[in-house]
Write a protein that binds this DNA or RNA. Structure first.
Length: 501
RNA sequence: GUCUUGUUAGCUCAGCUGGUAGAGCACGUCACUUUUAAUGAUGUGGCCGAUGGUUCGAAUCCAUCACAGGACACCA
């Protein structure tokens, strides 16, 4: 640690400052304004005589991002969370000896400083601060990355996110938007009368989705626990208990592959709404998007990569219909297992021939339709085999009252009228057990306690999950989930590399 | 998990078919009181991701490993 020669050099400066009786980690900040406020409040200075106002005094703080020393005067650009400010520092405006002995010798890019002075506009027309006091608050002993190119190495950016945030303004902005999205989501549902709840993250049975869980062990109880793959079954127990509108915004954990759209822990909102159906969910989803766009002040047409997504154009189409009209699959094969298998093989798709009709239709959808759904599209009427927790359609019991929302070729939300028939739910779980035995290791787990909860009666309810990470990707035009997660999952470095570091 | 590309100074990157390791920024020293990626001069800085192999000679060719990016597979 701290072997690097540049770090050594800076540590020496710290020692030197201490010897001179100057605290390099001072704790008595007198900051009385932020940079953006300073710039706003003093915008009128350029109309004043000599373009300055020596009667005003401000103390700002921030990190030095650029430093230009020109003999007896210098320009320093400092940055706080709100913005960047240029500061003019002249030898003769500071206490005797400070400029030459402290400032020029011991202050560097990366240091966090505090400066008091008055506003003025430079010859080149930039509103700046004319320093009369200068204080080092925190010495930075590791040098910052290059001032112009910043830091581009993705590995360093993810492993040392703080450096990424220091150097890349757009990154800070992305995470501000993420925070806004979560806050707005919370407000939207609260305003609709939903109650925010917290359900367990450690489950005795990993239920509510098809996914491999992380396993951990509870010592006191002597039992294994699973990090939750979805909160669904607990939220529905709350509906049984009499809460009529609940939501939870939190992490789910899935022990599966990682790629541009999958991180082992990810954030979703799930909400459940009693006395409503999936049709109501379509309406509230449209409203939710409208609310987000309004409050984030986004245009209704957003670029995403080389696509353009029109968020004023929500479409609704049943899955079977989408196979033919969007996927171009011949109409006469979509209800025939053998013909689907043949068709998939014809198109070089590896297919498990044992799959039932519903699952095969799902294959067709994944292969030929999904990526073509650019503008927001609700795909409805999923086969019952694909939806073990969804209510059957009254008109056609082979279908469920369900939709998935696709945007920019990607699934953003999943929703359905909830299955509340306990006997049907039990037999669906049993069906999943069979699927598990015949090799589908991601089939749902049996949850008898949940079935028992349903047996007391759950009001007709509609529920929905929205992937927050993917939603933020969409809104910020980011194409890797790692770019919307502050600390994405990374493999640990070897101990050798860590000690070297 | 498979394929593929990458890993060279604190950072951003050159380094071709093997022949003593380069630039810019940063840092040190000097000059400079309105610059803004300041400028000019000058200097320091490297186990070329790790380990083996081929070769008189390897940053460069080969193999294995580690980590990362991308694609695919898996995955609501």
């Amino acid at each position: 640690m701290f072997k690097n020669k540049f770090v050594q050099q800076r540590i020496e400066k710290v020692e030197l400052l201490k010897k001179k009786g100057y605290n390099p980690y001072s704790n008595d900040s007198k900051r009385n304004t932020t940079i953006s406020k300073y710039l706003k409040v003093n915008a009128d200075v350029e109309h004043k005589e000599n373009k300055r106002d020596e009667h005003r005094h401000y103390t700002v703080g921030g990190r030095i991002k650029l430093l230009r020393i020109m003999g007896k005067a210098s320009f320093v650009n400092i940055e706080d969370e709100s913005g960047t400010l240029q500061v003019y520092i002249a030898r003769d405006n500071l206490p005797e000896g400070f400029y030459n002995n402290i400032f020029k010798k011991n202050i560097e890019v990366g240091d966090i400083v505090e400066i008091t002075g008055y506003p003025f506009v430079t010859g080149k027309g930039e509103l700046s601060l004319h320093a009369s006091e200068f204080k080092l608050l925190t010495k930075s002993i590791s040098p910052l990355p290059e001032k112009f190119h910043g830091i581009t190495d993705k590995e360093i950016r993810y492993r040392k996110r703080y450096l990424d945030l220091i150097m890349n303004k757009e990154v800070r902005n992305t995470f501000k938007i993420r925070s806004r999205v979560i806050s707005l989501t919370r407000h939207f549902f609260e305003e609709k009368g939903f109650l925010e709840v917290e359900t367990p993250m450690m489950h005795p049975i990993a239920g509510g989705a098809n996914a491999k869980p992380f396993v951990t062990h509870h010592n006191a109880l002597g039992v294994d626990r699973y990090l939750r793959i979805a909160p669904e079954l607990y939220l529905k127990r709350l509906i049984v208990g009499g809460f009529e509108a609940v939501f939870e915004i939190n992490r789910n954990f899935r022990n599966e592959g990682m790629d541009a759209t999958h991180n082992p822990e990810f954030t979703s909102i799930e909400f459940y709404w009693a006395y409503k159906t999936y049709k109501d969910l379509i309406e509230i989803t449209k409203e939710y998007f409208q609310y987000l766009f309004e409050h984030l002040d986004l245009p209704t047409i957003l670029p995403y990569g080389d696509m353009e997504v029109d968020f004023s154009d929500f479409k609704e189409i049943p899955l079977a219909e989408s196979l033919t009209t969007i996927g171009g699959v011949p109409k006469d094969i979509i209800n025939d297992r053998e013909k689907i298998v043949a068709y998939l093989k014809e198109h070089d798709v590896d297919v498990n021939e044992k799959l039932n009709l519903g699952l095969l239709q799902g294959e067709l959808f994944d292969e030929f339709v999904e990526e073509k759904l650019i503008n927001p599209t609700f795909i409805t009427e999923y086969p019952v085999e694909l939806s073990p927790l969804a209510r059957r359609s009254d008109e056609n019991p082979e279908l469920t009252e369900r939709f998935e929302l696709f945007i920019a070729g990607r699934e953003i939300a999943n929703a359905f009228s909830e299955l509340n028939d306990p006997v049907d739910q039990l037999s669906r779980f049993e069906g999943q057990m069979d699927a598990k035995e015949s090799g589908d290791d991601e089939a749902h787990e049996m949850d008898q306690d949940f079935v028992e909860a349903l047996s007391y009666g759950m009001a007709p309810t509609a529920g929905q999950g929205i992937g927050i990470d993917r939603l933020v990707m969409l809104l910020t035009n980011e194409h890797s989930i790692r770019d919307v997660l502050l600390f994405p999952a990374m493999k640990p470095l070897s101990t050798e590399e860590i000690t070297k570091d």
